[in-house]
């Protein structure tokens, strides 16, 4: 049995990219390992900007969606955010059917996603700064 971790985490600027290394599937058998790996990583990391990269994933079941909600809850409680990228068409459709496209921002290819995520954070910071400035005036 492979000892490869289900997610490889790499820091790219202010974004933590978690590339799901499970090359074929996220099915009922390996989903709990995926969830545990992610939840252990995000624990005690306040303000984490996590980008989960699905470029190697060709299949997922609803159990993965439940794990993603748990991961999202854990990260947002710490003031961070979870976004997703590189989902193939079938997977995007699953998110749409289950309304989870309303929970997660989903970016396109991984190479652009980090830049877009960083730009989004900067825009949010500018907006917050502007709101503080407006209140002070």
């Amino acid at each position: 049995m492979s000892t490869q971790p289900p997610i490889n985490f790499v820091q790219e600027g202010s974004i933590t990219v978690g590339t799901i290394a499970t090359t074929s599937v996220l099915d009922a058998l390996n989903v709990s390992a995926f969830g545990q790996c992610a939840l252990e990583y995000v624990r005690d990391k306040p303000g984490l900007n996590l980008l989960l990269n699905f470029e190697h994933v060709t299949y997922l079941s609803s159990a993965v969606l439940s794990e993603l909600i748990r991961i999202n809850d854990a990260v947002t409680k710490g003031g961070g955010a979870v976004r997703l990228c590189a989902l193939e068409e079938n997977l995007q459709e699953v998110f749409k059917i289950t309304n989870l496209d309303q929970v997660f921002v989903i970016y396109g290819p991984a190479k652009d996603a980090v830049k877009r995520y960083e730009r989004s954070i900067k825009l949010n910071e500018q907006e917050e700064s502007w709101q503080r400035f407006s209140k002070e005036e």
Binding site: S62, S66, V94, T98, N99
Partner: peptide, 14 residues
Amino acid sequence: PPDTVHTGGRGLCL
């Protein structure tokens, strides 16, 4: 029906 908060019910929806 699945909502955006709870973890269950999505399999049947799919």
